[in-house]
Amino acid sequence: MISGLRSSVPACAAMFFAGTTSAADIASIHPIGFSADGQIFAYEEYGIQDGSGFPYANIYALDLAKDTYLPGTPLRVRLEDNDATIAKARWQARNDAEALIETHELANHPGELVAFNPITEVDEAPHRLRYRSMPVLPPVGEPNTLVLEEVPQPLDPRCEGLAEKSVAFRLRFTERDGKPVDDAVHEDQRVPLSRGCVGGYRLGGVVSGATPGGTGIEVALVLVLSAGFEGQDGRWIAIPIKTAGPGTP
């Protein structure tokens, strides 16, 4: 299924518009978990804004079937205090999200980070992940190959002088369980304003989970690289690539 982005917010976006925040920081990411029925996935991103030096932490809870935020989310914290720390920002964001996490029992189903490709990795392709969905040895199942393709877009006038290009992206599988396929699972219809002056993406990881009935769930983690004050900022979005579907036991 090709999922489009909503007109008001991007699907699972975790962005700030460049110029309204600080610059040149790559957010860290921490998956929180899935709901028991596989319908919800939550994750946290956090870091220090390079321009201001303020710590921030954001928690996103996503309805995977609808490819939208849950009502009342995302939860964003930025501590504008020179004595503030990342630990304090993360604690406040987690405290704000405590009821949501408990209601959906997200911490009881943390999922597995079955593939990860950080921006510091130099030997792996930034737009491709080949992985198995089951984190076990001996291996179970054959590999999947997920690729991200950047799609050039007209440059937003507000980004002139800040970015040389603007790009959307699509995700597709070229291999599932060891068999060649051509299976598109996401395609941007446009570049949402909340991504800022985006000039590129990195396919950063895959988190897998399962429902009590054994249906597999997978979410791709995409790092969005946008123009910042001193370089490129990196913020995370999560894209459902395999969902349980409504009513799955």
Rank of each mutant, 00 (worst) to 15 (best):
M1A: 10
G4K: 14
S8P: 03
P10M: 10
F16W: 13
F17S: 08
T21E: 12
A23T: 00
A27P: 00
S28A: 04
P31S: 01
G33H: 14
F34L: 01
S35K: 01
E44M: 12
G47C: 08
D50A: 13
P55V: 05
P55D: 14
A57G: 04
N58C: 08
D63S: 05
L64K: 03
D67W: 10
P74F: 04
P74L: 02
D81N: 14
I86E: 07
I86K: 02
A87N: 01
A89K: 01
Q92M: 15
A97N: 01
A97I: 08
I101F: 11
H109M: 01
A115E: 06
R130F: 09
R130P: 05
Y131M: 15
Y131W: 14
R132W: 07
P135I: 10
V140A: 11
N144Y: 12
V147K: 02
D156K: 09
C159D: 11
C159R: 04
A163K: 10
V167H: 11
L171P: 02
P180Y: 09
D182A: 09
D182F: 00
D182N: 15
V185H: 04
H186M: 14
Q189S: 14
R195T: 00
R195V: 12
V198N: 15
L203C: 09
G204M: 07
P212W: 09
G213H: 00
G214R: 07
E218K: 08
V219N: 06
A220K: 11
L221N: 05
L223V: 02
S226T: 13
F229D: 12
F229T: 10
G234T: 02
I237Y: 08
A238S: 15
G245W: 11
G247E: 15
